[in-house]
């Protein structure tokens, strides 16, 4: 049976508690499950809150492994070797290192595996994996890899149709403590519902952004407005689109 490890990060910031959409990780999970492989969800952190991880439990799998370690790259690489997985899938911008997006590349380097970026589909076949990745403007590339690989998933590139949300449900969390670390015990009880602060204090909120757009819109007004019969307007339109090199013929 082919095995895939999906590395997920907390969908909220560990310090401020700001929630953000970990959509690329949930998509990585959806792609792994669609491949028909046996999936293991792994999260690495030193935190002690578990409720946010439940986001990843709604896709049909009911267990995840929480490795408590300050070094996600080494811990994930070690886990991939220990469990003898055939592929690792992850998002592109984890919470680690303020979201530099380097984690997948560091893991792949320590495993000496190739990285396939922008995975849309991964299918195990008799001679390894066949993967579809996204290129610019909706084009796609098909790759054949014989050995194991590490794939990153970028949420904007994924075609519509892959589920991005699912209801949370009860999940069994297996905690793996790294030796030699003195971390506070994890809290695995269900946390009470609480209000969620969507923005850090002082950061721009939705109203601020709308005000900026209104101001910019009022300041613009520099476009051309053309009236006339629809025949002429159609001609102007096609000329404009053609000037951007977009018309097929």
């Amino acid at each position: 049976m082919t095995r895939v490890l999906v590395a997920v990060s907390l969908p909220c910031h560990p310090t401020t508690g700001n929630r953000f959409r970990a959509s690329s990780e949930t998509l990585a999970l959806a792609i792994a499950l669609a491949s028909g492989a046996e999936v293991e969800i792994v999260h690495v952190s030193t935190g002690n809150r578990q409720e946010d991880l439940l986001t990843f439990a709604g896709f049909g799998d009911s267990s995840l492994v929480w490795i408590r370690s300050p070094d996600p790259a080494s811990a994930l690489a070690r886990r991939a070797v220990e469990t003898n997985v055939d592929a690792v899938l992850t998002g592109t911008r984890s919470a680690m290192g303020l979201g530099t997006g380097l984690l997948p590349y560091v893991i792949a380097r320590s495993l000496r595996w190739p990285v396939l970026a922008g995975i849309l589909e991964a299918t195990p076949c008799s001679d390894g994996w066949r993967c579809e990745t996204s290129m610019c403007h909706g084009a796609r590339a098909v790759w054949q890899t014989e050995g194991p690989f590490l794939g990153t998933v970028a949420s904007p590139a994924v075609s519509p149709g892959i589920p991005r949300f699912a209801a949370s449900r009860k999940v069994e969390i297996g905690v793996v403590e790294e030796e030699g670390l003195d971390l506070p015990k994890p809290d695995l009880t269900d946390a009470p519902r609480r209000s969620v602060a969507l923005n850090a204090p002082g950061s721009p909120d939705h109203a601020d952004r709308l005000r900026t757009i209104l101001t910019a819109t009022q300041a613009l007004n520099s476009g051309r407005i053309i009236e006339g019969n629809p025949e002429e307007l159609a001609d102007v339109f096609l000329q404009e689109v053609k000037s951007h090199g977009l018309l097929r013929r």
Partner: peptide, 23 residues
């Protein structure tokens, strides 16, 4: 060595995700 590029597929506008679309 490494993964082999088998082929590239031209963009299909109907299937393209909106953030990736050019037109």
């Amino acid at each position: 060595g490494g993964p082999r590029l088998l082929r590239t597929i031209e963009p299909e506008p109907e299937r393209t995700a909106l953030p990736n679309a050019r037109f």
